[in-house]
């Protein structure tokens, strides 16, 4: 019984942790959208900033991955 409650809590927590992915999605969208807006305004400078774009996306995405990881840990490791 006690184990079931722990399990239930873990699953609920995993579900909650998945919300973090939405934040990462917003972040990645923000980075890419702003990049595009800037690139359309000054296309000649766009090519030199693709590395920065990917780094920004990677940083934003990593946080979503962290939440996914928390969800996985809650589901499988707790």
């Amino acid at each position: 019984m006690e184990g079931d409650i722990v399990q239930m809590g873990a699953y609920i927590g995993a579900g909650l942790a998945c919300m973090g992915m939405g934040g990462a999605a917003v972040g990645v969208g923000n980075v890419a959208g702003n990049y595009l807006a800037g690139a359309l305004r000054n296309p000649s400078a766009a090519a030199s900033q693709t590395a920065t774009l990917f780094i920004g996306i990677a940083f934003a995405e990593a946080l979503g991955i962290f939440s996914f990881l928390v969800a996985l840990l809650l589901m499988f490791a707790v």
Partner: peptide, 10 residues
């Protein structure tokens, strides 16, 4: 490290 492993695993 977790970025790479997490992306692949996910």
């Amino acid at each position: 490290s977790i970025r790479l492993a997490g992306n692949m695993m996910a």
